[in-house]
Design a protein around this nucleic acid. Sequence first.
DNA 1: CGTTAGTTTGAGGCAGATCAACTTTGGTGG
DNA 2: CCACCAAAGTTGATCTGCCTCAAACTAACG
Lengths: 207, 207
Amino acid sequence: MQTNDHDEINLLKELGESFVTKSFAKGDYLYRQGESPEYLYHLKLGLVGLLRSTEAGNESLLRLFKTDQFFGHRTLFSDETYHASSKCLEDCQIKLIPKKKALQFFNETPMAYAYLAKSLAKELRRAEVRSVTVSEGDVLQRVASALILFKTLKPDHLWTRKEIANYCASRTPTIITAMSKLEAKGAISQHKREIQIVNMDILETFI
Amino acid sequence: MQTNDHDEINLLKELGESFVTKSFAKGDYLYRQGESPEYLYHLKLGLVGLLRSTEAGNESLLRLFKTDQFFGHRTLFSDETYHASSKCLEDCQIKLIPKKKALQFFNETPMAYAYLAKSLAKELRRAEVRSVTVSEGDVLQRVASALILFKTLKPDHLWTRKEIANYCASRTPTIITAMSKLEAKGAISQHKREIQIVNMDILETFI
DNA sequence: CGTTAGTTTGAGGCAGATCAACTTTGGTGG
DNA sequence: CCACCAAAGTTGATCTGCCTCAAACTAACG
């Protein structure tokens, strides 16, 4: 749930302000797959990933939340348990809004549910489009679009090969091979663990 | 969007009743990927599939709508164009509710948006869980769960191998091989184009 | 009863997974 | 501040599940 470009729902932001901001370390989990929701989360600083763990022991990266985004709302408003875990990919500052307070706010604010619905509708589109991309395209294509997304979302984050693999439904060695190809073509550069997009036009030709 | 088990939203059903039911033939499209929404659809009879076409010319089967379900709502409430087409997989009876009337109903009915949000939230979970299943599991697993889903959803529909393939992110020949394995194990039976689940316990061992 | 749509089978090829050994990086504590 | 160690990255060899292609067969519908 994003509030950025929707003035009418700025009150949602205010909702969070009445609660204290808590600190979390990189690697911390806010909640785990299978648990029941207790809070609505508002990320003030850092980066959070939504991960679903598979039987094979992998963690598929479903969504990313950046500064100013709300998360945990899908489960909060669906009477279900979490289908994935949320984990800090960096040190984070997060406001936890108790479930009761959040529901109360929504029930008192007619357009809040409309906004929530719209937000979920967009997320659903994204998820479905991505599932087609994943099953139809090859790894190079997926890595290229993942890099564009990641760098747009948070250019300064030190993305690991594993994070990229988890997002691309692939594995670390495969991602490394794909990225060397992209580097060889002059689309990106890699120094130590830093990844830079040096030529967006070239990178986009892989999509 | 389903209304089945939610008494509080039965008024939504009534909304559709004031409009005439139109007939569509198997193969007809209600709307196509890229178009802008004009209606909210209420399926009275038949089976509708939501398909996203890929560059390679395939049609990925994203969702299925059966009798009494609403569809077209994701796009209607998200200010976007359709990201997939909806196509009659059987002859259908459908009520078309003009966009304006639908929006008016939602704006006049506070809990309608809350219900819509909940419905989209569940659909989002389904989509994300499925994307992990598709990228992690093998074809046999996907076919087994697809058959269970399809037979639960509409036992009498004559599912084609292509429909199954489109849903399983696979291809017709691969589906046929997978289904012969399931038949050899005594999980299903195939006569002409008819598919029957003869032993659900066995079938579930493949998931 | 002809035509079209759907099904079936097999041969061949390849993208990407797996596995394993090795190197680099960067944080931590002695 | 350096030595160490765990975590992350790299590389190549091998293997395999599924796709592709093509040809032949069967069902269903007008």
